[in-house]
Amino acid sequence: MSLATLTIDARVARLTINRPEQRNALSLDLLNALHARVDELRTRDVSLCVITGEGKAFCAGMDLKAVLGNPAGSLELLTLLAELTYKIRTLECITLGVVNGAAIGGGCGIVTVCDLAITFAHNTMGFPEVDLGVCPAVVAPWLVRKIGPGRARSVLLAGGLMDGTQARDIGIVSSLVEHHADLHEASERMIAHLSASAPNAIRATKSLLNTLDGSLDRELLLRAAKLSADVLNTPTTQAMLRAKLGA
C-alpha cells in the first residue's frame, strides 16, 4: 500500500496521507510519495482537492528520528516539505484540509497551506517546534499569510498545542464541527458545495490570490528549509531530540 493515495471522482480529488501506524508522520519516503501524487494531480482537471489523513491522526509532523545525526538528511526532509507546500498552494483547484485528527508541526503546516480547512472542537493542533529546539521556518510564511503577522508571531513563539476551537478562532481552520463523529457529514457537504463552483472562475481567482499574497515566493521557502535544518543540526537540538525521541 502506498504511503499516499490519490483518488479522483468527477471533479473532486482526494489525497490521503497513509502511514497510520506512525500517525502519518512525514518521513522522506512519505514526502516523496506525496510529491508523486501531487505531481499526478497537477496533470488532472479537478475543482477541489481534499487532503486528509488515514487512521486517527491527520499528520503528527516531521519524522525526525530517522534523520537524527544526519545533517544532509535533515535538509532533504525539510526541503521536501517546503517544496510540497509550494506545490499544494499552486494547484489550480481549491484545496480543503479535512483535519480528521491531530495535526502537529509540519502536519499543521499542511493544514495552513490549504485554502480552507475543517476540523472538530476537541482536536489537537499546533506548532510545538520551539519546545523541541526546532525552528518552524517552513510553515512560518504560510502561517503569516493565513492569520496575519501578529497572531503568527504569538503562535509560533509560544509553541505548545491548541484545540480545534482555538485553531478556528485564530483562523488556521475555517470551519468547525463539535464532535469528531460530525466531521464526515459536514466535510462531504462542504465538498459538494465547493466543487459546484465554475472551474475557470476558481482557476482565475486562485492564481490572483497566490500572486497578491506572496504565495509564489518559492525562494523564501527554500531559505526557510535551510534555516530549519541548521537549527535542527545544532548539538543542543540534537541532544534535546535524542532525549525526547528516546533515540
Partner: peptide
C-alpha cells in the same frame, strides 16, 4: 477577484482567500 485587493486590506490574506473561495 475584482475586490481581492480591498478584501485583503480589510480582513487579511488568509480570511480573504477563505471567503473568496468558499461560496457559502
Amino acid at each position: 477577484a475584482v475586490n481581492a485587493a480591498g478584501l485583503i486590506a480589510h480582513v487579511g490574506a488568509g480570511i480573504a482567500r477563505e471567503r473568496m473561495l468558499d461560496t457559502s
